[in-house]
Design a protein around this nucleic acid. Structure first.
Lengths: 231, 231
DNA sequence: CGATCGCTTGATTCCGATCAACAGGAGTGG
DNA sequence: CCACTCCTGTTGATCGGAATCAAGCGATCG
């Protein structure tokens, strides 16, 4: 764990505790360590742009607190959210020359910003680290491919079920989900309209598949029913 | 170009000529060199499985001749093709533990098969090579994200237009496309049905946007009209 | 030459989009 | 504290684009 020592004098104590989350995202925590070490924390307000599609990709980002939407737009305003970045997630890492999508904070968010050139330098010197970056991209790609299946072939109910299971996995305690995003964000993530998302959620509430004590809080009642919709 | 010399005694002459293609896919040709050097060529017949989703990812692949579909299935048979691999393309590279999708030859295809462990070993020793792998994954991810936008937000005509432009770019001479895949493959790539693909293509023929002298050959008549549908 | 497979075309259905109205909650200012 | 407004989300009615169902065509191959 002191692989960083050749690049920095700062002690490499574990910083996971700072995140204050019940779960840590899968993947290299060493990558998070490097970004944290090499970067600066910036606070973004609600709907502030972190970067725009097509801009030179000079930085990589780590969400400490808050959440970020990564999305692409068509010229007429249609939007597709590619991914949500939650606390502990790194994003903007896979850009090659320029960012392939835009990124906006969904609420007041603390984000560590690190120079890509530094990451690249470390990667070039350290094959193991570069390999971790490669594998991190591989995992991101696998997720994207699952989403291709969702967007290309699943119906509304299946999409919402997949979303709920994903969010249950990534936040909360498997039973209760605290949504950091609006219904519109969910719709643009799932390739649906806000009305269809709302209706589908209502329907699942009537089914007792889920309960919603608050707008942005969903409790999963019937995990089996959700899982059955997932394959 | 002799970075391979430490791993092999075979001379590292340029092997691109072997591919017999008008265009070489973007990205590291060094990666193709490594795979070619370290691998063995195997010929697959039409619809032969190269690997199945969930299998241990022990190999990486390079298409020399022919073409491959990479796809995921739902339990009821719905299929989403994530990507097509054409001559010069490497696939199966981004898998982490197991393959995240299945791969089948679309016709008789010559494919170089190389052990992943060898690639990994080189990557661990050579930060520059590992960084190339990382960037290759980044490009694949960018393509996948563009396809998320297509599958989530574009209508049938826009999807087909995007497909034609992609194929014109990847094969042939920008004017004439020789399709290596069936209408069903196109449909499963674009998240449509075979009937909708057929109708849309017919409609574009009536428009004189395209011409189809043969079933598997498409000539682009109005590039501007196609491009207008793309953003 | 006939059979099969791949593709096209037509008729109808259906799921999700669109259009429209309203409800509830949070935040604001008096 | 309450009245007001704005914003987000829900619900209902209708529409439309692609799916589904169905039939026929044409090329390829044994």
């Amino acid at each position: 764990m002191d692989r960083l020592s050749s690049f920095s004098n700062i002690s490499t104590r574990d910083r996971e505790g700072n995140l204050g989350r019940p779960r840590v995202p899968t993947g290299s925590s060493f990558l998070r360590e490097v970004v944290t070490m090499m970067g600066t924390t910036i606070t973004f307000g609600r709907d502030d742009e972190v970067f725009g599609e097509g801009e030179l990709a000079d930085y990589v980002y780590l969400v400490v607190q808050g959440s970020v939407r990564n999305y692409k737009l068509l010229s007429d305003g249609r939007r597709q959210i590619a991914s949500f970045a939650l606390p502990g997630d790194v994003f903007g890492l896979d850009a090659v020359e320029t960012y392939g999508f835009s990124a906006e904070a969904m609420q007041k968010s603390d984000i560590v910003v690190a120079k890509r050139s530094v990451i690249l330098l470390i990667a070039l010197r350290d094959g193991a680290f570069a390999t971790e970056l490669w594998q991190a991209s591989g995992k991101a790609l696998a997720k994207a491919q699952s989403r291709l299946l969702l967007l290309g072939r699943k119906n509304a109910r299946e999409r919402v079920a997949a979303f709920l299971m994903e969010m249950a996995e990534r936040t909360g305690d498997d039973e209760t989900i605290n949504l950091p995003m609006s219904r519109l964000d969910i719709a643009d993530y799932l390739g649906l309209t806000i009305e269809t998302v709302s209706r589908t959620i209502s329907c699942m509430e009537h089914d007792a598949t889920i309960a919603l004590p608050k707008r942005r809080r969903i409790e999963i009642g019937d995990t089996v029913a959700l899982r059955r919709l997932n394959a």
